[in-house]
Design a protein around this nucleic acid. Structure first.
Lengths: 215, 215
DNA sequence: CGAAACCTTGACTTTAATCAAGGTACGTGG
DNA sequence: CCACGTACCTTGATTAAAGTCAAGGTTTCG
């Protein structure tokens, strides 16, 4: 049931409204009054819903700089710390334009990701999305488990694992430890994900139009 | 290529900033400067992206009262009229809190929908989401084509069609014309979609926990 | 060092996509 | 009003993709 409350004493170290949560702890629960929104200062946060059939549906991951918890009335999701995290908490009062925009951008990124059809496409897009633009090392650190990734993308851990292995076999990525993935061929990954980059590889000339609205 | 521009002369009929778009016309294009956001007054709007591999990815549908086009800088998607629509257009200046919230809510609904795993789950959730809470007739009008639904849910038109047919065969829905679907057993649909309603039917006692975080 | 959690892989089953063919609805013009 | 053409929808057969079942290997952490 996790390690309990998140109002860690360490929060007192930082001035006002900077809080620390241990890995696995809950930042807020679905259904609680949404009085504050959060910005990730360090670590990774996930939001999820526990559905009636027992499945956990993971809606998004949030990294440094991302905003979450901008809900109306009550939180629609539960937020949990994937790693130890530090967050800044702000009350939800006025002039919320900027955070709302940023939250919205996250939601849209998520939707684009989920709109990908095959497991390979989703995972390629997921890896690309995990690249830190400030860091040119081409290494993606995946702080979350395979189960987290699977739930986020609507796959099983088996498919995630198999697909990563297959990508590694083809030289697209290299898996150091499970959570350290080096991208060896970014263009190929981009092509697989369906976002730009067609130069190398061919994709089997797979330019099929799903609908006939191009006339 | 659609029936061309959307700045229909009929727009002049309504006072300021109420516009009319013919079915199939484009309201704004992906990449354009996002100077305005929109509220649907009548009809249905879809937003989509045309991906590099030729696939159209449909991100959302918008109905009366919904807000769309709340993007920063440039539009991230193309907006098109699914039916003839009337929209109110507002410039994007200050005090955007409310529309941002509403847009965000839409994005979240969309994400929840896409998070469903099987075709049946997605379509059940889609049908439930299409119910007008103000109208108790249990009849869902789907103004969009099967192709639109398929693209939105990451399925093919074949699977959409087959799944609807199968639901009808089992008495969950009744298909009048393709765009008029009557819901005959809402609880069963809810159970399939994974959102509440377990009373009737059993779902084979399918309360499997995907991850082990329930201790 | 040992236990537990997590990850990978193989064999088989289920689900959805693809390939292919008809059927239905709708608008247009005769 | 009916005939025809087009776009849209449905269905069947086959193939490909992902899930399930089962087992074994790794990492991590106490």
């Amino acid at each position: 049931m996790g390690s309990g409350g998140g109002e860690d004493p360490e929060a007192a170290v930082e001035p006002l409204q900077v809080l620390f949560f241990r890995k696995g702890s809950t930042i807020y629960f679905e259904g609680e009054d949404a009085r504050c929104w959060y910005e990730v200062l360090r670590g990774t946060v996930r939001t999820c819903r526990f559905r009636a059939d027992g499945y956990r549906q993971l809606t998004n991951f949030f990294y440094r700089g991302d905003v979450f918890g901008v809900d109306e009335g009550r939180y629609l999701e539960t937020a949990e710390a994937v790693t130890d995290v530090r967050v800044r908490r702000r009350s939800l009062t006025a002039g919320e334009e900027l955070p709302l925009r940023r939250a919205l951008a996250s939601a849209q990124r998520c939707i684009f990701l989920l709109g990908h059809k095959t497991a390979e496409q989703r995972l390629a897009a997921f890896l690309i999305g995990g690249l830190d633009p400030a860091d040119s090392s081409q290494t993606v650190v995946l702080p979350m488990s395979r189960a987290d990734i699977a739930d986020h993308l609507g796959l099983t851990i088996h498919t995630v694992s198999r697909t990563f292995s297959d990508m590694a076999r083809r030289g697209l990525i290299r898996i150091g430890r499970p959570h350290m993935i080096s991208i060896m061929d970014l263009d190929a990954l981009r092509a697989i994900s369906g976002e730009e980059a067609f130069d190398s590889k061919d994709l089997n000339g797979h330019v099929t139009f799903v609908t006939g609205r191009f006339a």
